[in-house]
Design a binder for these strands. Structure first.
Length: 865
RNA sequence: GCCGGGAUGGCGGAAUUGGUAGACGCACGGGACUCAAAAUCCCGCGGUGGCAACACCAUGAGAGUUCGAUUCUCUCUCCCGGCACCA
């Protein structure tokens, strides 16, 4: 054993041992409780970033912990390997996306291995491989058969930079989620997956996911967006034909207050009216162009224009004018709304603007309405001025009105969803080909199963002009499977969220050539613990829940929720430093170029190392290229090794919180592991017995105290690791070493050795999930066993925790006034006697009458005077 | 606007069901070792007063419940996240 801690040597050695022993291979063992621990697979962008390191360290801690707790653990890893960055890199460097991706995977895999993660690499998969994506295609065909997948032409979100369609989920504030480019509207045919069929189930089942963070469930619920209301029609005549203008409302109780209707600019009625009205046509155009650009749409001025059309109120029979309104969304509900200015703030603003009447038909339950209304009264109340509905409250009014509408065949109650079907067609090259053949005679023909997979040619180099697949005659030209005549292959590929919607299932049977999911899936799935970033709270996790249900309905899997427990790790932040140049431009400096000094006046001074001149501090923010505040994990590993990097990440913040990078903090972690190494070295060289453990036996008082502390800290650490609070588990490891180092040096050598040995035995096991290499090495060096990973998880010895005398805090009127030692089994009365004899306590009582004595066993005594 | 989450020393963060607030670490100060420095080790470290013993104040602000509140209730302020003309 070396005297000096050399992380690189011991880490290489440990990793080699694990590798040659196949230590992380997971085997299906029926009857043995399994634990499937999964971290979100990375996109092979080139190299790992700090977020990956944090994510996978959390997963690895859980993996190793549960393994030592006796579970049969699976921790796989793979690559989310399709996607746009590969195409962009290909354009920049002229390298085919396939090669770029494969090279990146090789490098990042090496990095992951150097971090010592207990990953079963035999199950590795990459979504860009035909063995994987053939099942995307196969399941897509099954969905087509079931009508879950279908083709339609629709106005879609078009990203002009990436030249592709985006799902609604991928449009944020009117911009592409990846490019940030303003999204355009285009009419394009494409394939959709009917996720809305599962909306109800996806929403309801959220309540049966106790292992998910509440905020993720809330975000999904909001996204699915269930509204209860009434859908009804306003009858009218157009070109002599009877028609209905359909609207949806959650406030049917206000129907008697309707003074107008408003339709979206894209609504057919708007188009029809604009045909004979140039001014209206111009307005409709303006609305369409205005689009969905800004997030502050809600504050936009309400604008509108009358169509000249009137419809009939379904209950009063009175005429109601129809307007085009810029605040009506075509994509939600019917693309048309009833206007109730008295009880909807938007309608109120609209009616005020255009001097439409604002009648009040709802009054507060207890009180009167101030008339005329200064703003819409939007709360639930009681109907008035509403004919036969007068006096009814909200639920009763809605029931009555819905019933009346139904009786006239003009509407009924309806549930409306915000969620819309998932468009999966992408006009991109680097993705799963959609297995469809377009035949002039037979139409859109599915590729027959025996012809799967439709293999993506891997030697394409995109040049930025459209989809390179469309230019490949050998790919496009084919024969129609039905009639045998020449036909064209579909060149759209699937959204990459398809790939990630089921990869966790494939890990159970990555080599199954004949089936998408075989019997092994039933053993491993569902995932017991999923770990990843909060940014996937909606898209990936919702799609996966949907996809799993589709597989369930096809009889492929026997479960419906893929992830039993979800941990969303916090982001990794770092300091931001910058300078403003004369032109107002901002230049960012990496924190490692900046010298930070404590300054007496301002507290802190920051200067650039290169020129000694000051730089401004921009606080902390997520590590990013644009802020130039990233730290390369590779540098960290090269300098400190994996254990220090891992231990720092676990110690600094709880896993769900943000983690602020700190070089000094890393140095602190390094200091601790070095101290541990030195302590173990000294122990190994001073002990009488050459190896193995000794029983503690009867101990002198000082050593018994050390042992008690070790076990007490362990008890707390076990509670903490169970609730995933790894930072305090790391601090427990520090406390144990502190306790051992403080042990009296002059104690009986044999007894001391026993306590130190037991302490190290516990400490190394406790530490091993966080810092596996040093634990593994010292475990062997000290003769505790072959591999600490195969040891059992340490449990505190109840006997060690027992004290003959315990310390009680004494409070007077709730304030701490001293402490006393009492025998462990002292009863209330005995405790009182001891407490009242204490001089410090007597001083505070000062002869006053004691009204009450509160005794909390084992903790404190409170005297009330 | 609506829905979540949060606010504790100079900093990251502890405090299981209400029971010693500030564990553990970082930074900082002092000391030992050294010719010196680094590393390492020891001591101190919320604020105010005091030589000290000790006392008082202190968990965003204010109130309440309680023998006792960082923890529970109400009101307010600020911060972070999500959703947002959703009818």
């Amino acid at each position: 054993m070396q005297q000096k801690y050399n992380p690189h040597v011991i880490e290489r050695d440990a990793q080699q041992r694990w590798e040659s022993a196949g230590a992380f291979r997971a085997q299906e063992t029926p009857g043995r409780p399994k634990y499937y621990c999964l971290s979100m697979f990375p996109y092979p962008s080139g190299k790992l970033h700090m977020g990956h390191v944090r994510n996978y360290t959390i997963g690895d801690v859980l993996t190793r912990y549960h393994r030592m707790k006796g579970r049969n653990v699976l921790q796989p890893m793979g690559w989310d390997a399709f996607g746009l960055p590969a195409e962009n890199a290909a354009m920049a460097n002229g390298v085919p996306p396939a090669k770029w991706t494969t090279d990146n995977i090789a490098y990042m895999k090496k990095q992951l291995k150097s971090l010592g993660f207990a990953i079963d690499w035999s199950r590795e998969l990459a979504t860009c491989k035909p063995e994987y994506y053939r099942w995307n295609q196969w399941l897509f065909l099954r969905m087509l058969e079931k009508g879950i997948a279908y083709r339609k032409t629709q106005v879609v979100n078009w990203d002009p930079v990436d030249q592709t369609v985006l799902a609604n989920e991928q449009v944020i504030d009117g911009r592409g989620w990846r490019t940030g480019a303003v999204v355009e509207k285009r009419e394009i045919p494409g394939y959709y997956l009917a996720i809305t069929r599962y909306a109800d189930e996806l929403l309801a089942a959220l309540e049966r996911l106790p292992g998910w963070p509440g905020r993720v469930k809330t975000m999904q619920a909001n996204w699915i967006g269930k509204s209860y209301g009434v859908r009804f029609g306003f009858p009218y005549e157009l070109d002599g034909k009877p028609e209905k203008l359909w609207v949806f409302t959650t406030r049917a109780d206000t129907i008697m207050g309707v003074t107008f209707c408003a339709v979206a600019a894209e609504h057919p009625l708007a188009a029809r009216a604009a045909r004979d009205d140039l001014k209206l046509a111009a307005f409709v155009d303006e609305c369409k162009r205005g689009g969905v650009m800004e997030a502050d749409l809600a504050t936009l001025e309400k604008k509108g224009m009358p169509t000249g059309l009137n419809v009939t109120h379904p209950l009063t029979g009175k005429p109601v004018p129809v307007w085009v309104g810029n605040y009506v969304l075509m994509a939600y509900g019917e693309g048309a709304v009833m206007g109730v200015p008295g009880h909807d703030q938007r309608d109120f603003e609209f009616a005020t603007q255009y001097q439409l009447p604002i009648p009040a038909v709802i009054r507060p339950t207890d009180g009167k309405l101030d008339l005329p209304l200064q703003q819409a009264f939007v709360e639930y109340g009681i109907c008035f001025n509403s004919g036969r509905y007068d006096g009814l409250d909200y639920p009763r009014a809605v029931d009555a009105i819905a019933a009346d509408l139904k009786a006239r065949d003009l509407g009924d109650k309806q549930v409306l969803w915000r969620l819309r079907d998932w468009g999966i067609s992408r006009q991109r090259y680097w993705g799963t080909p959609i297995p469809i053949i377009h035949c002039a005679a037979c139409g859109d023909v599915p590729v027959p199963d025996p012809d799967l997979p439709v293999v993506l040619p891997e030697d394409c180099v995109p040049d930025g002009t459209g989809n390179p697949l469309a230019k490949r005659a050998d790919f496009v030209n084919c024969k129609c499977p039905k009639c045998g005549k020449p036909a064209r292959r579909e060149t759209d590929t699937m959204d990459t969220f398809v790939d990630s919607s089921w990869y966790y299932i494939r890990y159970a049977c990555p080599d199954s050539a004949s089936r998408m999911a075989d019997g092994r899936v039933q053993y491993w799935l569902p995932v017991d613990q999923y770990i990843g970033g909060i940014e996937h709270a909606i898209l990936h996790l919702l799609y996966s829940r949907f996809w799993t249900r589709v597989m369930r309905d096809l009889g492929l899997v026997g479960f419906e929720e893929p992830f039993t427990n979800l941990l969303t790790q916090g982001m990794v932040l770092n300091e931001i430093y910058f300078r403003r140049t004369d032109g107002g431009r901002i230049t960012y400096f990496n924190p490692d170029e900046v010298e930070v000094k404590a300054d007496e006046r301002s507290g802190r001074s920051t200067t650039l190392k290169a020129d000694g001149q000051p730089v401004e501090s921009g606080g902390v923010g997520t590590m990013s290229k644009s802020k130039n505040n990233g730290v390369d994990p590779q540098e960290l590993i090269d300098h400190y090794g994996a254990d220090i990097a891992r231990f720092f990440m676990m110690f600094t913040s709880p896993p769900e919180d943000t983690l602020v990078w700190s070089d000094a903090g890393v140095e602190g972690a390094a200091r601790y592991l070095r101290r541990l190494w030195t302590f173990a070295w000294e122990f190994a060289n001073s002990r009488a017995a050459p190896s193995g453990r000794r029983s503690a036996g009867a101990l002198p008082k000082g050593l018994a105290g050390v042992r008690r502390e070790v076990h007490a800290v362990l008890k707390q650490a076990n509670y903490d690791i169970g609730r995933h609070q790894f930072n305090t588990v790391a601090s427990a490891a520090m406390k144990i070493l502190n306790a051992l180092e403080r042990a009296p040096r002059d104690a009986d050598a044999r007894a001391r050795e026993a306590v130190m040995g037991e302490g190290l035995d516990i400490l190394l096991r406790l530490l091993s999930p966080m810092a596996p290499h040093i634990s593994h090495c010292l475990w062997r060096e000290l003769g505790f066993g072959e591999d600490v990973m195969t040891a059992t998880w340490p449990e505190p010895d109840a006997a060690a925790l027992i004290e003959d005398e315990i310390e009680l805090v004494v409070q007077v009127n709730g304030k701490k006034r001293g402490d006393v030692r009492v025998p462990r089994d002292a009863d209330r009365k005995a405790i009182e006697t001891i407490v009242l004899a204490d001089p410090a306590v007597r001083k505070h009582i000062n002869g006053q009458e004691i009204k009450k004595v509160v005794v909390v066993p084992g903790r404190l005594v409170n005297l009330v005077i």
